[in-house]
């Protein structure tokens, strides 16, 4: 190419995986602002589910039931509402988070990426992107849900901690399952069916933590213990996924 001189040289080849992951993240965000497939699918999906839940539970408004200690409590209470919010977010995650992997596989850009960057960087970039999208969706959906169902936030710091750690762990599980499912031909059906059983455990933990938002407690341990469970789950999933990602991504 003698005649054309580019502003680069071969010494600039060693990009760290963090820089590569950030470049991939920026690329995905840019593509997402163009197409809005992931955000749109998850947004519409969760808004429709939100309506369905609110409508299905209208009949429960004002109904009292007896709890295990014999007191009359509202049937449609805050912890019930919070649990259903998480079911909703869980389904929303499975409506949209497979897009970024499936898209790369289907359009043939996956091989181009394989040439240019290592598997760890791809995993980090995609995890960052999926977490961002899911956080954005829950940031929009949660206030809407609170308004429509009349859910209280309870203890605010605990509420935010649960939302943040729950969303991050949720996207960690969804990301690795999406990468697995994207390698199969019938991705769509597989993604939900393979991912949801893994999420059931996380959902049990999150619902348990969410209940703590509405229990007045003096000691911080009462709040920290359920949160630790969620954070550990997410950290373990991310660690194992990062270690095993090249087996999923490469041929």
């Amino acid at each position: 190419m003698g005649r054309v001189r580019y502003s680069c040289c071969n010494g600039m080849n060693d990009q760290t995986w963090i820089q590569q992951a950030l470049a991939l993240f920026r690329k995905d965000i840019l593509a997402e602002t163009r197409t809005r497939v992931a955000f749109g699918a998850m947004g519409v999906f969760s808004f429709a589910s939100l309506l369905l839940i609110a409508l299905a539970m209208v009949g429960l408004k004002g109904v009292l039931i007896q709890n295990s200690s014999g007191q009359a409590v509202p049937a449609w209470n805050n912890s019930g509402k919070m649990s259903l919010l998480w079911v909703l977010l869980c389904f929303a995650a499975f409506a949209g988070l497979s897009h970024s992997f499936v898209y790369e596989e289907e359009t043939g850009t996956a091989s181009t990426l394989k040439l240019h960057m290592g598997p760890q960087a791809v995993y980090a970039g995609k995890l960052l992107f999926n977490t961002t999208v899911l956080l954005a969706v829950s940031l929009v959906i949660t206030p809407m849900y609170m308004v429509m169902t009349g859910m209280d936030a309870g203890t605010l710091p605990m509420f935010f901690a649960v939302m943040l750690s729950g969303t991050a762990s949720l996207s960690a599980v969804a990301t690795v399952v999406a990468a697995l499912a994207a390698r199969a031909r019938s991705t769509g059906a597989l993604f939900g069916a393979v991912g949801l059983p893994m999420l059931t455990v996380l959902l049990v933990l999150i619902m348990n933590a969410a209940r703590q938002c509405y229990i007045r407690s003096e000691s911080a341990v009462q709040y920290l213990r359920p949160l630790t469970g969620i954070v550990c789950f997410g950290v373990l999933i991310v660690t194992l996924s990062a270690m095993l990602f090249h087996y999923i991504w490469e041929d």
């Binding site: 580019y6 680069c8 060693d14 990009q15 470049a23 920026r26 240019h116």
Partner: peptide, 14 residues
């Protein structure tokens, strides 16, 4: 994007 993966940045003129 592909340049960034290799640490290349480009001016408009390039």
């Amino acid at each position: 994007f592909f340049g960034a993966l290799r640490g290349q940045t480009f001016e408009k003129i390039d």
